[in-house]
Amino acid sequence: RHRTTFTSLQLEELEKVFQKTHYPDVYVREQLALRTELTEARVQVWFQNRRAKWRK
């Protein structure tokens, strides 16, 4: 699998949602996936990684 490189616009969208909730439900993730043109799975993994980073 290749590494997904996020654009600054995608990161902006993702971070905006992360500020509101660290655990977006499937509906929120789907909406975010559509807005960022990423798959829902990529969005889910981004949140997992972002939460790990936040905990440190």
Rank of each mutant, 00 (worst) to 15 (best):
R1L: 10
R1E: 10
H2P: 09
H2I: 15
H2W: 04
H2C: 02
H2G: 14
R3I: 10
R3V: 04
R3D: 12
R3H: 15
R3Y: 13
T5K: 14
T5C: 13
T5W: 08
F6R: 05
F6L: 14
F6T: 06
T7V: 04
T7K: 01
S8W: 07
S8F: 09
L9D: 13
L9F: 13
L9Y: 15
Q10S: 03
Q10V: 06
L11G: 05
L11H: 13
L11S: 09
L11K: 08
E12C: 05
E12A: 12
E12M: 11
L14W: 02
L14F: 01
E15R: 02
E15L: 00
E15W: 03
K16H: 09
V17E: 12
V17Y: 04
F18E: 01
F18P: 01
Q19W: 04
Q19A: 14
K20E: 15
K20A: 08
K20T: 14
T21D: 12
H22M: 13
H22V: 04
Y23M: 03
Y23F: 08
Y23W: 11
P24R: 01
P24W: 00
P24C: 00
D25G: 06
D25M: 06
Y27D: 12
Y27H: 14
R29D: 01
R29V: 15
R29L: 12
E30Q: 14
E30C: 06
Q31A: 11
A33V: 06
L34S: 13
T36L: 14
T36I: 10
E37W: 03
L38S: 14
L38K: 06
L38H: 04
L38Q: 07
L38T: 12
T39A: 07
E40G: 07
E40D: 11
A41M: 06
A41D: 15
A41T: 14
A41I: 05
A41N: 07
A41W: 06
A41Q: 13
R42K: 13
V43A: 03
W46H: 02
F47T: 03
F47L: 03
F47D: 02
Q48T: 11
N49F: 07
N49V: 07
R50N: 09
K53I: 08
K53A: 13
W54V: 08
W54A: 13
K56P: 04
K56G: 08
K56E: 13
K56V: 09
